[in-house]
């Protein structure tokens, strides 16, 4: 079980978190002054299951109370879930907490260009996809939540394989993600959310190591149409580091077919070392949120004009590819 040792100020209680602590304590006496806007003290949190039972050691009483309160709310179902099944409290306190050690200590993620993601408006984050399983997407979610001044939640659009898989689909919905389809994309953007798409899909995550940092085809450009319909800016985002976590040297197609998966990865360590081979290599990660591409200046009906959609898709792809090259030059070495 992961230990979380949040160390820097970026993990300070977000405004929403503080508001919840103050405003939602039910019948118990509210402790104002002590709770809000204070960096999280060090704590040892063991995540036992989705109920989020946290076992704490040596905490100040205010923190203790809010934790008890949190456990009470989880056990009595007294929390809000949005129409997509997004459970912000569980995401903040359990799901993201489980990813943070990977984010901070293992991949040592460095983020730039956060100013390109709006604080209070919709945006469509479009990024390259790699690394066999979608760890890159999860790290981008941690980056936007922990490092962005407005602590934005990234609402990703996933393949339907995700939502038909037990546990994975459940966790994805609770973390705020939904199926990649027009109605959901437009609903989220219309509500002012930051939406994440990985248009390369399985072609990106499942590509051989020799193809690293070469962007694959960008689907059918559905994401561009959704952005055009809602006028949300597109933020082309480049992620460097995910390619090296599982260098895929082969693809066992027969096994994949039997398991109903789009590919079955063979890496220098997997499946030879079994579960040990599933430990990602500790590559050095850089994430850059690029200059936003506005989509609100187009005439009515541009979303249904394939030429406009293809051109914009191409522009986004080019921009991501260029920032990938720039980041790769900046990075001293793959594991540096």
């Amino acid at each position: 079980m992961p230990d979380t040792r949040p160390e820097d100020a970026s993990n300070a209680l977000s405004p929403s978190k503080a508001a919840r602590l103050v405003g939602n304590t039910g019948p118990q006496p509210v402790r104002p002054a002590a709770v809000p806007a204070r960096p999280d003290p060090r704590r040892l949190a063991a995540v036992s299951d989705d109920v989020g039972v946290l076992v704490d050691a040596g905490l100040e009483s205010a923190e203790d109370e809010s934790l008890l309160e949190f456990v009470r709310r989880r056990l009595t179902g007294d929390y809000a879930v949005d129409d997509f099944g997004f459970d912000p409290e569980l995401t903040d306190r359990v799901l993201l907490a489980a990813l943070r050690p990977l984010y901070r200590s293992w991949f040592r993620v460095e983020v730039t260009g956060l100013e390109n993601v709006p604080s209070d408006a919709a945006a469509l984050v479009v990024a390259n996809h790699s690394g066999v399983i979608a760890i890159d997407a999860m790290m981008t979610q941690v980056a936007l939540h922990d490092e962005h001044p407005a602590h934005r939640h990234l609402r990703m659009l996933g393949a339907n394989l995700v939502f038909s898989t037990p546990f994975l689909g459940e966790a994805a919905r609770k973390a705020g993600h939904t199926l990649a389809c027009h109605p959901d994309a437009e609903r989220l953007l219309g509500a002012g959310e930051v939406v994440g798409v990985w248009p390369e899909g399985f072609k990106g995550v499942g590509k051989p190591f020799s193809q690293r940092y070469k962007l694959q085809r960008f689907g059918r450009g559905g994401f561009v149409a959704a952005a055009l319909r809602t006028g949300a800016p597109i933020v082309p985002t480049a992620i460097v580091g995910a390619e090296e976590i599982y260098p895929m040297v082969g693809n066992a197609k027969t096994v994949a077919r039997i398991l109903g998966l789009p590919y079955f990865p063979i890496t220098p360590l997997f499946p030879w070392l079994g579960p040990l081979g599933m430990v990602p290599l500790p590559s050095k990660w850089l994430i850059h949120f690029g200059e936003p591409i506005p989509t609100d200046g187009f005439p009515e009906g541009a979303a249904d004009d394939p030429m406009v959609v293809f051109n914009l898709t191409d522009q986004v792809r080019e921009q991501i590819q260029h920032s990938l090259y720039r980041l790769l030059v900046k990075r001293p070495s793959a594991f540096g």
Binding site: D50, L75, T76, G77, Y79, V81, D82, D83, G85, K174
Partner: peptide
């Protein structure tokens, strides 16, 4: 308005439940 997840509904109803493979 709004949704409840099944696990949340069961917690609100103070019900015991058992998860069974599909």
């Amino acid at each position: 308005d709004g949704v409840l997840t099944l696990s949340q509904a069961l917690r609100r109803a103070r019900k015991a439940w058992v998860a069974v493979p599909s």
